[in-house]
């Protein structure tokens, strides 16, 4: 006859070892590398952006609708702002993804938070990209130019 001695585990935290070979792949490595590289590029882009907007010429006093419209008429600044938008959004999204992975304890919570995060990132990236490329400083609605004081009459 055999007696079963109960395992002296605390029962509060059941140790589960769910690691398996299924999660292999280079995604985490690429994400880690992207954070470092995009971080370096963003430092240049953001400080360049701040310098041009706030320091050059009249500096902060020159910023108005016309200033932004003028910048986006130039493909160079279109590309600069596009790169800044994409890199900052992906960098930030990946950072928050990391924080969710680190701190959300329940699988359900983690999944839910990440869904909201990715949805927000996609909307902002698409909307921003659309604005940069379709921006029209002199919109004409029903044959009437919208007031702005900037567009040639």
């Amino acid at each position: 006859m055999t007696a079963t001695i109960e395992s002296p585990r605390s029962g509060r935290v059941a140790p589960q070892y769910r690691r398996n070979g299924g999660s292999r792949g280079n995604f985490e490595m690429i994400a880690w590398l992207f954070m470092r590289l995009s971080g370096v590029v963003l430092v240049v882009l953001i400080f360049g952006h701040l310098f041009v907007n706030l320091m050059v010429g009249e500096g902060i006093h020159a910023i108005d609708f016309g200033f932004v419209a003028g910048k986006w008429a130039d493909p160079f600044w279109q590309f600069w702002d596009l790169a800044m938008l994409w890199l900052a959004m992906l960098h930030g999204t990946n950072g928050v993804r990391t924080i969710i992975n680190d701190y959300a304890e329940k699988t359900g919570t983690r999944r839910w938070l990440k869904t909201v995060l990715y949805a927000a990132a996609v909307v902002i990236i698409l909307l921003g990209t659309m604005v940069i490329f379709t921006f029209n400083p002199c919109p004409v609605v029903d044959g009437v130019a919208l007031p702005g004081g900037f567009c040639p009459a």
Partner: peptide, 14 residues
């Protein structure tokens, strides 16, 4: 290195 390239490997180090 392949084992530690896992989702739960070195890249989780902060």
């Amino acid at each position: 290195l392949e084992i530690l390239n896992d989702k739960e490997g070195v890249w989780r180090c902060r």
